[in-house]
Design a protein around this nucleic acid. Structure first.
Length: 425
RNA sequence: GGAGAGAUGGGUGAGUGGCUGAAACCAACGGUUUGCUAAACCGUCGUAGCUCGCAAGAUCUACCGAGGGUUCGAAUCCCUCUCUCUCCGCCA
């Protein structure tokens, strides 16, 4: 959510940015409402001030056992007017909020302009230490490999829940668990994150806090009977840990990481990239979240990307870092880098991580502030988050890159202690 | 799921219709005193918004879990909701 004053003073920029992000908010309507709002407040305030002083006068008269009927009658109409003004104000503010909630975050000046993913910029690329580099004759795709090796049972997963709900079996289940533990240990042990284990179902206020609601209601699973939502990412519960709180500046930058299952309806994406692990309704992810001082958040974004990259480097998987153009940057984000791994079978780059600086967009929605010193005015802090990493496409890259000529999978050395085995098959 | 109790400023906690934005104490901060520490004393000590001002700041308004209602006037009375605690029941 953007600051009302910021929208008022930068409405052209906000409008252009919204168009770049393919949204059409009613900025001029917002400005009209804003003006009306201030007029109402002014008028209501004057009347309330009058009511307060006259009420004191009434109290004084009553105590002196004098007649106050005329004043009381007068105040009755004043109170009625106040009530009507307050009602109108409520309506105006509701309309303003409705518009504001659908205005996307303004992108950072370093973000390139572009219509869609074609406008993104590759920042850097790293080759892996792939043991099969250059050998293409025996290359099988991840879904075929997984099926042959018996590490995932898509059919039974679909029987239990539906398509997009994979059932990991045997060494596949162990490998999945190994990846998650390995990544958590990296972030807590080497990168300075404090681990959290979060609720997977959250309330509406949390979803609004991080920006999933109200705009993206269609993308989420809901538990209607209890007014709860299944989280699409651990970003939601982790960021909301400090909702409505004021953190001391000495605790910033605060860094949390955590595992969660992620649930996404992926409505409207059937048939597109849905083979195997490419797009799932439920998957596992390690998420990193930072709470930073505004003047440090962009440096923190770079180190956040490095932390995510570190996983791929240790696992020796080829990847590249992409800076998203404004047209491809998410609703809440001011600047986003994607990490993509190479799938030799798909001959495609696959997104495994998205690292964003939201500046104060989420903090304003969720009311997360910090105070530089005792007695200082609390200010909104900056929130950042990034996947570190999501497992399904990481698994794709791992299987495809570490397959051997005889159809087995070599487990990368750093992962072996977590797996308890050196190969699959 | 049933019964009951509760929610006030950073903390404890007073306050049942007007003089309460809120006592008192604690914590914190500034100062005086002091060889140092301690103690004592004095002062400061919530958030948000409108308007005015270059600014420091000033006026006004709102906020005592949240939202409605009654009233000239609500922390205080009424209704709904949320959360916490206690007891009973059920349960991994």
């Amino acid at each position: 959510m953007l600051d009302t004053k910021f929208i008022r003073e930068n409405h052209d920029r906000v409008l252009h940015n919204s168009h770049a992000k393919h949204t059409q908010p009613d900025i001029s309507g917002f400005l009209r409402l804003d003006e009306r709002r201030r007029a109402i407040i002014q008028q209501a305030q004057d009347l309330k001030a009058k009511r307060n002083t006259v009420s004191e006068e009434i109290a004084r008269l009553k105590k002196a056992k004098e007649n106050a009927d005329a004043l009381i009658a007068e105040m009755k109409t004043v109170s009625d007017t106040i009530k009507h003004l307050d009602d109108e104000l409520r309506g105006v503010e509701e309309q303003m909020e409705h518009i504001t909630l659908f205005i996307p975050n303004v992108t950072h000046e370093s973000v390139p302009h572009g219509k869609d993913a074609s406008g993104n910029i590759e920042v850097r690329r790293k080759d892996g230490v792939n043991p099969c580099e250059g050998e293409r004759g025996f290359r099988k795709d991840h879904a075929t490999l997984a099926k042959e090796l018996g590490i995932v049972d898509f059919e039974r997963g679909a029987k239990i829940s539906g398509s997009g709900f994979p059932l990991y079996t045997g060494k596949g289940a162990r490998l999945e668990r190994a990846l998650l533990n390995f990544m958590l240990d990296q972030h807590t042990g080497n990168n300075g994150y404090t681990e959290v284990f979060v609720p997977f179902l959250v309330n509406e206020a949390s979803m609004r806090g991080t920006g999933q609601l109200p705009k993206f209601a269609e993308d989420m699973y809901t538990c209607a009977a209890d007014d709860l939502y299944l989280i699409p990412t651990a970003e939601v519960p982790i960021t909301n840990i400090y909702r409505d709180e004021i953190l001391p500046a000495s605790e910033l930058t605060k860094k949390h990481c955590g595992y969660s299952a992620c649930f996404r309806r992926e409505a409207g994406s059937y048939g597109k990239d849905t083979r195997g692990f490419l797009r799932l309704h439920q998957f596992n992810k390690i998420e990193m979240v930072k709470f930073a001082k505004p003047d440090e958040s962009y440096a923190e974004l770079e180190s956040l990307v490095n932390d995510a990259e570190g996983i791929l480097q240790v696992l020796g998987i080829p990847y590249r870092v992409i800076l998203l153009c404004d047209g491809d940057t998410g609703f809440s984000s001011a600047k986003t880098y994607d990490l993509e791994v190479w799938s030799p079978a798909e001959q495609k780059w696959l997104e495994v991580s998205s690292c964003s600086n939201f500046e104060d967009f989420q903090a304003r929605r969720a009311n997360i502030r910090y105070r530089t010193e005792q007695g200082a005015k609390p200010e909104f802090l900056h929130t950042l988050n990034g996947s570190g990493l999501a497992t399904p496409r990481l698994m794709v890259a791992l299987l495809e890159h570490y397959q051997t000529e005889d159809g087995t999978i070599r487990i990368p050395a750093p992962l072996q202690p977590y797996c308890g085995f050196e190969q699959i098959g």
